[in-house]
Amino acid sequence: MSMTHQVEDDKLMVEMRGVNKWYGQFHVLKDVNLEVKKGERIVICGPSGSGKSTTIRCINRLEEHQKGDIIVDGTTLNNDLKNIETIRREVGMVFQHFNLFPHLTVLENCALAPIWVRKTPRDEAEEIAMKYLRRVKIEEQALKYPGQLSGGQQQRVAIARSLCMNPQIMLFDEPTSALDPEMIKEVLDVMVELADEGMTMICVTHEMGFAKTVADRVIFMDKGQIIEENEPHEFFNNPQSERTQAFLSQILNH
């Protein structure tokens, strides 16, 4: 449970202003405005195809936006490769399908970016890797290959791999959607712990329990637009928009 955490009101980590994106003719993001303060935990939810994944994938330039501004920790995202690399060093990302590197051991997966991007000496990088593997309680698997681990274990490794770069912001793109039900909790526990330590987090997820207990704000997106944005208690108990009400009744009552 996260009771005492610090949101620094004056420090914006992510700022999206009037962001628009098209896939060919298809308008996938429509005038998205989002501000995330340091230490804040945002949950983005919405039906599939609503643009929630695309929104967070624009933050680290896995997708390119065509209109509007995105500023991450003071750096403006444009076509300058230097800026993109700076931002990617500061932003960690966890994917729905883990995307671990199958030809490398768990330890090598984690130490890779510190060695090659941050130029950390190998033994130091491996120490960092072990530290985060311990934190996600998986250090005993360090020398195995990802293919030998369960889905939940792989996702925890993926979280550790991101943390090894010491990111300022963590993006989670449906981190539990590809997991078997009995493995969801072990991943959510790690995420809750991370939130308790004050990490700035933006999570796209369908885990409404996680949203209720951890989020500072819940954002509901539909058809490429932000429809509603509120603190979790109000969002779940008193949704304003009809579309939000319809969505919540679909996912909560079954």
Binding site: R61, L62, F95, F101
Partner: peptide, 20 residues
């Protein structure tokens, strides 16, 4: 996903290709 994970970690094109 392999390309995306490599990019998200901050690897540039040649490192992504050469290492991943």
């Amino acid at each position: 996903g392999q390309y995306e994970a490599a990019q998200a970690l901050g690897l540039n094109y040649w490192k992504m290709m050469g290492l991943i």
